[in-house]
Design a protein around this nucleic acid. Structure first.
Length: 466
RNA sequence: UCCGGUGUGGCGCAGUGGCAGCGCAAACGGCUGUUAACCGUUGGGUCGUAGGUUCGAAUCCUACCACCGGAGCCA
């Protein structure tokens, strides 16, 4: 079998090189060209780093008239010599012996310019925006963050489970879901006045998943510790810089695990992945911090070194009531915490991560474990300054009769959850888990203010382009 | 879905009732071991869409659309 002796040389490696006067071949996209009839400076980037490499093309090159026409976006291949740069601005540069053009980019039509363009505009050309410095950095960091997620769990013996994307269970009853159907929308089969999904592809109504948690629990009660990491869908008409209709969620689920252990794991997890990007993406983070006018490095270090503050929901409500602050919606036991409340807790009161625990059962999902007071649940939210809720988790209700009661109370049909209840019928165990919004973590890490700018192709109401 | 803001050349913006402008980008020319290069010249517009007020609308009014921000829902 043939193998490649060496994969492509990356510009990052050339810029880091301590060897000079060596022959090199590089490929990439032109960022800018300047020069005269005698020579040209061509700056080339291949996405491996923020920095461009400067290529010097002498007018003696046979295709110099072509080189003079190079503009931003053109793809080229350069053969030449890596040399120490005589001028300021870079340590090394490439003296070109040969430059060939893979593809031109008509400068009249190519929308990316040297000058800064707005994030709003770049969203309209999301197919080209990874070529910009900012988005190149964001997506390199995204990659490292995803690596960190896997590394954390794999190092602890967790099994990565691929839970289904198409589901027929309305997991939590709350969230709006996307219908998955092959029925003819202009002429659907109708029975008793409503669409007859028994004639649909799956023989029943099917949706895109809003969480892999229920399926995750099934695997945790077999493989002990598992996690899912995949796309998740919400058909809510949410139009905020913190919401997407399609986003990626990390959901660990642990058997023989109680509420306290769950919180400790969540805290360890956040600290680990934040530290991992700190150690592996410092340059990109430094750049993003400057661009976004947020000291992300400092912010990340602060969380990594912090002890998370813990407070019960009941204590939080008291604290908010006695804060002396006038909120638009005053805190009131039994009501969900408002964004303004969460901001106060994370940003003004504790200046750091806050874990809020033991919420009233009325405002949380049916599967959470009821506390002995029968009023609150073993639920927790982790809040970060500037981002808000980044993790939501709980110990799950493992007692069959409690869970059945809860399903009835919520007005759900027990038959729909027969398999979920089976887990409690056969060798039930205490178990717990949480969900992490991957893009929200990435927002915190990069300082990007809009969540649409940390996912390659954002899906939001009114937009599924590309 | 509710509240607020914005929509003017490829991009960023000014113009708030009287000849549609500036910067960047682009084309052409010049100059330069340059580096957001620099200097000169040129081209580029149904002012978001539809209707209305007015002698006259980018500007005022109405509706709609899109985008941005805040709220709700949440991760």
């Amino acid at each position: 079998m043939e193998t490649l002796a060496k994969w492509k040389i990356r510009i990052k490696d050339l810029l880091d090189s301590t060897e000079y006067d060596i022959p090199v071949i590089l490929r990439g996209w032109v960022k800018t060209r300047r020069g005269s009839k005698k020579f040209s400076f061509v700056e080339v980037n291949d996405g491996s780093t923020l920095h461009n490499i400067q290529v010097i093309a002498d007018c003696n090159l046979p295709n110099y008239s072509d080189i003079e026409k190079l503009t931003a976006g053109c793809s080229i291949r350069v053969e030449g010599k890596l040399v120490k740069s005589p001028a300021k601005g870079q340590n090394v540069e490439v003296q070109a012996d040969k430059i060939s053009v893979y593809g031109w980019a008509d400068p009249e039509k190519y929308p990316l310019q040297k000058k800064a363009t707005s994030r709003e505009f770049l969203r309209q050309i999301a197919h080209l925006r990874p070529r910009t410095k900012t988005f190149g950095a964001v997506f390199r960091v995204r990659n490292i963050l995803a690596c960190a997620v896997h590394k954390f769990f794999q190092d602890r013996g967790f099994v990565y489970v691929h839970t289904p994307i198409i589901t027929s269970s309305d997991c939590e009853g709350g969230a709006e879901m996307f219908q998955v159907s092959t029925l003819d929308y202009d002429n659907p089969p109708v029975k008793d006045g409503i669409v007859d999904f028994s004639q649909d592809f799956f023989g029943k109504s099917a949706k895109l998943t809003v969480s892999g948690q229920l399926e995750g629990e099934l695997f945790a009660t077999a493989l002990m510790d598992i996690y899912t990491f995949g796309p998740t869908f919400r058909a809510e008409n949410s139009q905020t810089p913190r919401h997407l209709a399609e986003f990626w969620m990390v959901e660990p689920e642990m058997a023989f695990c109680d509420f306290e252990e769950n919180i400790i794991l969540a805290e360890d997890f956040l600290k680990y992945i934040l530290n991992y990007v700190l150690e592996n993406c410092e340059e990109d983070l430094l750049f993003l911090g400057k661009r976004n006018e947020v000291d992300v490095l400092k912010q990340l270090k602060k969380v990594v070194d912090s002890q998370f503050n813990k407070i019960t929901y009941t204590e939080a409500v008291e604290l908010l009531k006695n804060s002396g602050k006038s909120f638009e919606y005053p805190a009131d036991w039994g009501k969900d915490l408002q964004t303004e409340h969460e901001k106060y807790l994370a940003e003004e009161k504790f200046h750091g991560p806050v874990v809020v625990t033991d919420f009233p059962k009325e405002i949380k999902a049916f599967y959470m474990r009821l506390n002995d007071d029968e009023k609150t649940m073993r639920a927790m939210d982790i809040l970060l300054p500037g981002i808000g809720e980044i993790i939501g988790g709980s110990q799950r209700e493992e007692r069959l009769d409690f869970l059945q009661d809860r399903i009835k109370e919520m007005g759900f049909n027990e038959d729909d959850y027969w398999w979920y209840l089976d887990i409690r019928r056969f060798g039930t165990v205490p178990h717990a888990g949480f969900g992490v919004g991957f893009e929200r973590v990435l927002q915190f890490v990069t300082g990007m203010s809009n969540i649409r700018d940390v996912i390659p192709f954002p899906r939001v109401p009114n937009n599924a382009e590309f």
